[in-house]
């Protein structure tokens, strides 16, 4: 019975993905991609990876969908929203089919992995948290996560560099016009308080249960986006000092915790068990704030409105 569920889910995922690639119209492709993200999130739950499912639902379906829809709107303003007809491409089809077949073959030839079992079970109590995924993200593989938070900053820097000179100093994103009694204004009043609660809970619970800085931070970013799109709050001006501080808080706290590990003799980014719990909580809170602000700014995009000086 559960196998039938998995089979139907996989068929749905593939069907929606095929519609994303082969359907007509850019807008339709984006809508199918959002549906695809939600279906894949269900797939992750079926694979037992609830942390990934939360990230996929919030980022893959949520923020990426908003990003693409906003991009479609911006391209329409530039007169480039129309779909460019793409004729069937035989070499591309051969390449895609070849890669799929090679991966299918590789799956049957893949050796079974060594189970993390005893090593992870021994190391987990010293990591400072109980959720093994959070332990891996923030402690055992801290380098990856620290550099990832820097990648986010680098992407935002690159995006802001694309701002037109005439718009520099303006409020980030497109100016929003919302009907005061419309659906979006209603959403803007109802959703942010609920989202705030869920986001903070996800950050807080991440130490012991599925959740954490990434999932919670993404939900908080979505709260900011909904509030901004509904006109409930105005996005900050590009380069405002306080918001810049929020952007770097996560990587900074992460680095300081890493240096504290070095000062205590355990080595850079190696947290000794006596401070691990407190350090991971501080990192998680700061990182969630930075991720929320960075992702929201990334999705809103550079300022568009020309400033009159």
């Amino acid at each position: 019975m559960t196998f039938v569920l998995d089979a139907v889910l996989c068929a749905l995922i593939l069907g929606v993905a095929a519609a994303t690639i082969a359907g007509h119209g850019v807008f339709r492709a984006i809508v199918f991609f959002i549906v695809y993200g939600l279906l894949v999130a269900v797939g992750w739950v079926r694979l037992g990876a609830v942390d990934v499912a939360l990230a996929e639902a919030a980022i893959g379906a949520g923020l990426t969908g908003v990003l693409f829809l906003a991009a479609y709107g911006r391209l329409g303003r530039e007169g480039a929203g129309g779909d460019a007809p793409a004729p069937a491409h035989l070499p591309a089809a051969m390449a895609g089919l070849g890669v799929t077949c090679a991966l299918g073959w590789a799956w049957s030839a893949l050796p079974l992995p060594d189970r993390p079992g005893p090593q992870l079970a021994e190391a987990l109590p010293m990591s400072g948290v109980e959720n093994p995924v959070t332990a891996v993200l923030l402690n055992f593989r801290a380098w990856d996560t620290l550099l990832e938070s820097v990648v986010l900053l680098a992407a935002l820097t690159g995006l802001w560099m694309l701002t037109r000179d005439a718009a520099w100093g303006g409020r980030i994103g497109l100016p929003q016009h919302v009907r005061p009694d419309g659906v979006m204004a209603g959403f803007g009043r109802v959703l942010p308080p609920l989202g705030l609660l869920v986001g903070v809970y996800l950050v807080y619970i991440g130490a012991d249960r599925p959740g954490g800085a990434f999932q919670g931070g993404t939900v908080l970013a979505a709260v900011g986006l909904v509030a901004a799109l509904a006109g409930a709050v105005r996005p900050p001006r590009i380069g405002a000092t306080r918001w810049r501080a929020a952007l770097v808080a996560g990587p900074l706290v992460f680095l300081l915790a890493g240096l504290a590990g070095a000062a205590l003799g355990a080595g850079f980014l190696t947290l000794p068990p006596q401070i691990a719990g407190a350090a991971l909580f501080a990192i998680e809170v700061a990182l969630a704030a930075s991720i929320a602000v960075t992702l929201a700014f990334l999705v809103l995009g550079p300022p568009e409105e020309t400033i009159t000086r």
Partner: peptide, 8 residues
Amino acid sequence: ALIGLGLY
């Protein structure tokens, strides 16, 4: 299959 579709 998704990787193949995406590559196409």
